[in-house]
Design a protein around this nucleic acid. Structure first.
Lengths: 118, 118
DNA sequence: TCCTTAGTTCAAAAGTTATTGAACAATTGG
DNA sequence: CCAATTGTTCAATAACTTTTGAACTAAGGA
């Protein structure tokens, strides 16, 4: 079973901007960008919001085409749709991430760094 | 008498993104960008919304730090805060404008091209 | 001075988004 | 099978945003 995602040409600029105009979601994107390539499950974002609320924000990001969620067992592995966003809106994601990186007012995520237990 | 504007370091990324995540405001910004350097008065945007509603959207853009409004007689002359936005969020405005340029779903503005009667 | 033009403000209504807790479903491990 | 883990859905509420019309202010021109 898989979750609904827009395809690349359906990604809309105002919707993407609107979705990124929320500090919680911006923090999620920033964290995904900092671990780019590594699929993360939802619980990695629990310092940002409650489980229910995260489900809501992650659905918004997915429906806007910003993230992709793959079902793996009971997990949803989440990645940034970097290639699709770069194709559709060149430079946008990079400038947003760079701007978010030095915005002290944004909530931070992280600490428990155990993505691949060696 | 002058209108309140945030100064450059007060411009916030989520607020800017949120403000741009509205098709009417994105169309305003796109039009300002297409006439960059030329200050435009509010009535130039009347194909996008009613006068009252424009006042609302233009205030949002101004309060977010995206535009500057200068009072000249009974007019408010509006410009993009390009230098400030570029300083604060390098590349962001350009990528948004470029993306908006080829988004057919966005409302268009223009036609009556009489900014400087020659 | 009076009229017009340009834009704002206000209050109300309508619509949308965010947040919550309780209940649910699906998978995995013991 | 049972329990735990992971995440969703639902309904309710709270909080914000958008849109509207009527009333207003302030400047400029006749």
């Amino acid at each position: 079973m898989s979750l609904p995602h827009p395809n690349t040409d359906q990604i809309s600029l105002p919707i993407v901007l609107g979705v990124l105009g929320d500090p919680t979601r911006l923090a999620i994107v920033r964290y995904l960008a900092s671990k780019e390539g590594v699929p993360l499950n939802c619980s990695r974002f629990l310092d940002l919001a409650s489980k229910t609320n995260l489900s809501y924000h992650l659905a918004k990001l997915r429906e806007a085409g910003v993230t992709r969620a793959e079902v793996v067992g009971t997990n949803r592995m989440i990645t940034l749709r970097r290639a699709d966003l770069d194709a559709r809106f060149p430079g946008l994601l990079d400038s947003v991430i760079a701007a978010a990186a030095d915005d002290a007012a944004l909530p931070a995520v992280g600490g428990h760094d155990l993505e691949v237990p060696v």
